[in-house]
């Protein structure tokens, strides 16, 4: 029995042309999912970074525990836990349970990025602020944080790109984003290889657009300092 070729270029081209309306629609869902999870993840991440930097031990323990648990368990487990578990308490749509799971997952890494960036700022900066009569909080807000934010941009950009790719796992709770759309098309046409290469190209495109944006932000921030 001849199984047919694994990859057919003609099929690839025709499928690329035929499927793009579906993928554009799905791509928008992926973008929404990424933006929602990254924004919420950044807010939660900053909160836990501040807790971890707190002088109060109990706050540091809470933040440390949170980060350890989130980083120590697979994203797919978190997505399932939220979708199947949490939805028994509050009804969450598939989109929002996936977005929240992704946000929580990203937040642990983002917290560590902000903590690291903040701690990398020279202690002399804090001392200079305090010696001028600024309070600890004011010194943090006016002197340390603005510098830490700048330092956090490259690793944050990196984390956002990971978040974009990780959003594909939302397919498993039936969010019609890029990956689930590809699965559906592949199952229908049996053009498996072609379809997954096509969806790979869409992810790559999105990542490249994202990278350009991150680089632009990075350069803008560098410019204002030099």
């Amino acid at each position: 029995m001849i199984v047919g070729s694994v990859f057919d270029f003609g099929t690839f081209i025709s499928e690329l042309q035929r499927t793009y309306p579906f993928f554009i629609e799905a791509g928008l869902v992926t973008i929404q999912l990424t933006i929602a999870s990254v924004l919420i993840g950044t807010v939660i991440g900053i909160l836990f970074a501040l807790l971890k930097l707190s002088p109060l031990k109990i706050f540091r323990i809470i933040a440390g525990t949170y980060i350890t648990i989130i980083r120590g368990t697979p994203l797919i487990v978190q997505i399932f836990a939220l979708f199947y578990g949490f939805s028994q308490i509050i009804m969450l749509s598939a989109f929002w349970s996936a977005a929240l799971a992704l946000a929580v997952h990203n937040s642990a890494y983002i917290a560590e990025i902000f903590r690291g960036a903040t701690q990398s700022i020279d202690k002399g900066q804090t001392e200079a602020g305090r010696s001028l009569g600024m309070s600890g909080i004011m010194t943090m807000r006016r002197i340390v944080m603005p510098q830490a934010m700048r330092r956090a941009v490259p690793p944050l950009g990196n984390q956002f790109i990971i978040g974009l790719k990780d959003s594909s796992l939302a397919a498993f709770v039936a969010v019609d984003e890029l990956f689930r759309t590809a699965q559906g098309i592949a199952a229908g046409t049996l053009n498996t290889m072609e379809t997954f290469i096509i969806v790979g190209i869409y992810y790559l495109l999105l990542v490249m657009i994202f990278t350009v944006i991150v680089n632009a932000v990075e350069q803008r921030m560098a410019k204002s300092e030099k």
Binding site: A128, S131, P146
Partner: peptide, 15 residues
């Protein structure tokens, strides 16, 4: 506020 301090490594705010 009443006690000014100048440091060995300046500690100017780079931003």
């Amino acid at each position: 506020q009443k006690v000014g301090m100048v440091f060995q490594h300046f500690n100017l705010f780079p931003h």
